[in-house]
């Protein structure tokens, strides 16, 4: 309607700011949408970073193990994964309330004893758990290998841990090898994967 258009134009002319306000609103709206999409895309990418480890492993590659530094539960201070370079690492994610973890603990403890801490370190990562419960568990099963507490389970997320227990094997150079074992380790799985990890 021409009358309508002229009034609209007149209004814009009368309030030169209104065009600017509109442009600003548009920019703000569009950039908010864009921001949201970018966040989601980032999340998709970072979310798949854990899964990427699994995929790489399945494809026969040895991706570098994501580093972490977490407070120890048995002993003082923190433990940094990269400080264990030169030794083979069995990275075991567990929680004290998890039933299969109870069967697995003696197995891991035995492995530590057999290989000696110079060549092999088992690192227990306790997540989504009360520290006091975890300490009680450590005492009860006589675990001597280092156990750290993963507050907020962010390390577990980086390693694509979806349940407890889960175990990764890391070679001397800090790369993931063998198999990402989901569920309790069997004697055979432990032996086979250790063989691969120690050989490298």
């Amino acid at each position: 309607m021409s009358a309508a258009r002229t009034t609209a134009e007149a209004r814009v002319a009368r309030h030169p700011s209104s065009g600017k306000v509109r442009a600003a609103l548009q920019t703000v709206g569009l950039s908010l949408v864009a921001l949201l999409l970018v966040i989601l895309a980032m999340r998709l990418v970072s979310d798949s970073s854990g899964r990427r480890l699994d995929k790489a492993l399945a494809a026969g590659k040895s991706p570098a193990a994501p580093d972490f530094s977490l407070p120890r539960l048995n002993g003082d201070g923190r433990l940094r994964l990269s400080s264990l370079r030169g030794r083979t690492v069995v990275l075991n994610f567990w929680a004290s309330w998890c039933v299969p973890c109870k069967q697995e603990a003696p197995l891991l403890q035995a492995a530590t004893r057999r290989f000696g801490s110079a060549s092999l370190v088992v690192v227990g990562v306790d997540a989504q758990d009360f520290r006091s419960d975890a300490r009680r568990f450590i005492a009860r099963y006589g675990l001597t290998y280092p156990v750290v507490h993963d507050n907020g389970a962010s390390t577990a997320t980086h390693y694509n841990v979806t349940g407890f227990p889960e175990t990764w094997f890391i070679d001397r150079s800090g790369h993931l090898v063998g198999e990402h074992v989901k569920g309790p380790l069997t004697r055979r799985q432990l032996a086979e994967n250790l063989a691969i990890a120690l050989k490298r």
Partner: peptide
């Protein structure tokens, strides 16, 4: 939560 994770690494 995604934003917090992305910017601060805190979930």
């Amino acid at each position: 939560p995604l934003l917090s994770q992305a910017l601060r690494g805190v979930s």
